[in-house]
Design a protein around this nucleic acid. Structure first.
Length: 754
DNA sequence: TTTGGTGACTTTTTT
DNA sequence: AGTCACCAAA
């Protein structure tokens, strides 16, 4: 693979980051005359952050500065936080002994950045670090003591309460004379940073961090609008828009869905032919969309379209410009980022809008939207908090530093076993086996990371951790206890910021006997809001599928057909023919990787056949039972019968792998509840074709009862209109509702069960 | 004292 | 998906 990758790079005349070091090093090593000429041309070399170089960089440096002539390096092994990408403090330890013989080493003993209390604190932490090649240091602050100890604040409650406490701390520091722009908040991960950033913004604290750009309401408003240009089911109409006059009341959505729930509707048809019987506001909104979207379609150039929507067709930009408060400014900056992102996309000839939306989904799935989260340089003068990862903070300094979330298990994070540990004996200068080496490196790196974060602070340093959560006491990170004797521990009760509830319940009227299928209840467990869009509002939309998922769909069809034949036996000629017929009719057959997918599909179907023993079966049928006033319907894929024709084994088929949590949900166990109720004595199993594994549904009375109660609670929640979103950067970008998910329009929705 | 069940919480870092 | 903390049963 690496060879193919390299060939591809060469044929495209491209280089990657590794090549930027490897190619010049190779050139200078193989062409001494060039090396001499280049070295002669360079007077002095200064390398900063030497602990973060890798072996390849040292090789390049040796070529540029033979024998270390006029070379000056600065580094601190305690700040070695890029080991995961090949940097090694090993280079620092062998600097003057091997790599640049005859060099000399000196050490700083005065710290010019932080006040005495802070220096003492991270010195105390550093004293306990077991870092290879670290020489003991005794830094002294030249600023003297400030009278303000390093603080550790413990907060009872959930993350929201911790954000309350952070907001308190930030405002307190501001009252003590530190502007927002002089305060930084450091987290180890981006997801947490985004959550805290959004929380602070909601509490009125100005923040120079946008969080996930494509999750922001003002950005989603725009993306939802352009999604209407290509979505014949007009899913985005089920969103409450900030722009007045463009929201369809909840009570009217059913009419749109009836009108558009067919294969012949084309995008924007509903503007020319609105559904009959709309309320007045809904009809007015349709008219408003008519002028908002006139002349655009899926082939419109995205940048022009968005710019016109923002500036000419709506008052979005004007209102943001006029509002002048910090929230409006953040919105303006977010839209600015969006517009610039869109402008930088490759120009497509046709289908530019769907291409853009697809690209955004992919970007978010790969977390490749991170650079869009930071405010552009031009906005840097705004008086707002700096939010960044600890990694990004290296080399920077701030008057005040807040470090939230220092609970056990977050920092240090436990080392995950590396997927590909270095082979034993490969690491020069280490006698550990590959796995132990990786683990030790990880634990050292975690300490370095905390050390970096601590040492960013000039005047004030505040560390936060959750205390009691709903049920249990959370222990602080073991790092906290190493912060020295001067640490002041406070148990704070944060002020209340009176935020509106995140997921208010939705006004629903149900008519008839509620009926839910097992798959629907399973979806409710994964994301209640997705369930609402899909099964209550009946907004169309399949997930965006991959070729791999399409292959699984073929397997499902083949399994259904096999079951319909009434016998599933290895000697029957049927299975292969069925797969072959479905396969050749599918667009998958035209893909470059088709043979691999075809092989896999055949294998999964063979697993299915092999997991049956030719006993007579009866095809698919349904079981249903009543719970909490609703009917629950279970789809049994097939059943085996005994000689007397009695049902013996009920089977459900899943084509994928068995997950470790596959049996934990309440919805899976609805099958067992139904069997106990309708077919007592019958066994029930789920087949997982990818593993050729079967799982028997069985649970002791106690746990089964908690599943039953959980199901009852979910049904009650559905009936009372509770459909909270469960956002996740992993699953949301695949969801059909990704661009419109957000606040639901006001009004009441009538749901009719036959 | 051990164990199994449960709910809450976090899912790296990036030139 | 894995860890942590708690609780109740074994």
């Amino acid at each position: 693979m690496y060879e193919s990758y390299n060939d591809l790079k060469r044929s495209l005349d491209c280089v990657d980051f590794g090549d930027l070091v490897a190619l010049p090093t190779h050139l200078l090593e193989t062409r001494p005359e060039i090396a001499r000429a280049v070295a002669a041309d360079i007077g002095h070399i200064l390398v900063d952050e030497y602990q973060d170089v890798n072996r390849a960089s040292v090789g390049l440096l040796q070529q540029l500065s033979p024998g270390g002539r006029n070379l000056w390096c600065v580094g601190d092994v305690r700040q070695s936080i890029y080991r995961f990408r090949g940097a090694s403090s090993f280079n620092l330890s062998r600097f003057e002994t091997q790599d640049f013989k005859g060099g000399s080493r000196d050490q700083l003993d005065v710290n010019y950045r932080s006040v005495g209390e802070i220096v003492d604190s991270y010195q105390a932490f550093a004293a306990g670090m077991q870092i290879e090649g670290a020489t003991p240091v005794a830094l002294k602050s030249n600023r003297g003591t400030s009278g303000n100890p390093v603080e550790f604040r413990s907060v009872d409650g959930d993350t929201e309460r911790e954000i309350d406490a952070l907001a308190d701390g930030i405002l307190e520091m501001r009252n003590a004379g530190h502007a927002f722009r002089d305060q930084a908040l450091l987290c180890s991960g981006n997801d947490r940073l985004a959550k805290i950033g959004a929380g602070l913004e909601a509490r009125g604290i100005p923040v120079l961090y946008l969080g996930s750009l494509f999750e922001r309401p003002e950005v989603k408003d725009l993306l939802a609008w352009i999604s209407l240009l290509i979505d014949r089911r007009a899913m985005a109409l089920a969103r409450e828009f900030a722009t007045p006059g463009l929201t369809i009341p909840l009570g009217d959505l059913g009419r749109f869905n009836e009108a558009l729930n067919n294969d012949t509707a084309r995008p924007l048809d509903w503007i020319k032919h609105p559904p009959a019987g709309l309320s007045e506001p809904a009809a007015a909104a349709v008219a408003a969309y008519s002028s908002l979207l006139a002349g655009f379609d899926g082939n419109s150039p995205p940048w022009d379209t968005l710019a016109q929507l923002l500036l000419d067709r709506s008052r979005v930009a004007a209102q943001i410009a006029g509002a002048g408060n910090m929230q409006a400014r953040a919105k303006g900056i977010a839209l600015w980022q969006l517009i610039n992102f869109v402008r930088a996309q490759p120009a497509g000839r046709s289908g530019a809008i769907p291409a853009l939306l697809e690209r955004i989904r992919r970007l978010v799935r790969l977390s490749d939207d991170r650079d869009l989260r930071h405010i552009p340089q031009a906005a840097g003068a705004i008086d707002a908090m700096r939010l960044m990862t600890m990694h990004a903070s290296k080399g920077l300094e701030f008057r005040v530093v807040h470090i939230p979330g220092m609970a056990k298990g977050t920092l240090p994070r436990n080392a995950a076993a590396p997927a590909c540990p270095p082979p034993d004996g490969m690491i020069e200068g280490s006698d550990l086996d590959g796995e132990s080496f990786a683990e030790r490196e990880h634990m050292q790196e975690q300490q370095c990371l905390f050390y970096v974060a601590l040492s960013r602070a000039r005047d004030r340093l505040l560390v936060y951790a959750p205390g009691r959560t709903k049920k249990s006491e959370r222990q602080p990170s073991p790092f906290v206890a190493r912060l020295g004797f001067g640490l002041s521990r406070l148990y704070v009760t944060p002020s209340s910021f009176n935020l509106p509830p995140d997921n208010p319940s939705i006004a629903m009227i149900y008519r008839g006997q509620p009926l839910f299928r097992q798959s629907e209840l399973a979806l409710y467990e994964r994301c209640a809001r997705r369930f609402f869009y899909t099964h209550i509002l009946k907004l169309g939309g399949r997930r965006t599928t991959t070729a791999y998922e399409d292959m699984h769909e073929i397997v499902r069809q083949a399994v259904r057909e096999l079951i319909a034949t009434g016998t599933i036996a290895a000697e029957a000629a049927g299975p292969d023919e069925i797969v072959e017929r479905l396969w050749s009719a599918s667009p998958l057959a035209a893909l470059p990787a088709a043979p691999a997918y075809r092989r896999l599909a055949g294998e999964l179907v063979r697993h299915f056949v092999a997991m049956n023993d030719g006993k007579p079966i009866v095809p698919a049928h349904r079981l249903s039972f009543t719970l909490a006033g609703a009917t629950i319907e279970i789809e049994i894929d097939y059943a085996q019968t005994d000689a007397a024709g009695e049902l013996r084994e009920l089977r459900q088929v899943q084509t994928g792998h068995r997950r470790t949590t596959a049996m934990e949900g309440a919805a899976v166990m609805a099958t067992l509840l139904a069997v106990n109720d309708q077919a007592p004595g019958c066994g029930a199993e789920i087949l997982f074709l990818s593993d050729a594994a079967r799982e028997r549904l069985s649970l002791k009375d106690g746990p089964l009862d908690t599943r039953r109660r959980k199901l009852e609670a979910n049904i009650a929640a559905i009936l009372s209109g509770q459909f909270p979103t469960k956002t996740s950067p992993r699953s949301c970008p695949k969801c059909p509702a990704f661009f419109m998910c957000g606040t639901v329009p006001g009004g009441t929705f009538e749901k009719n069960f036959a």
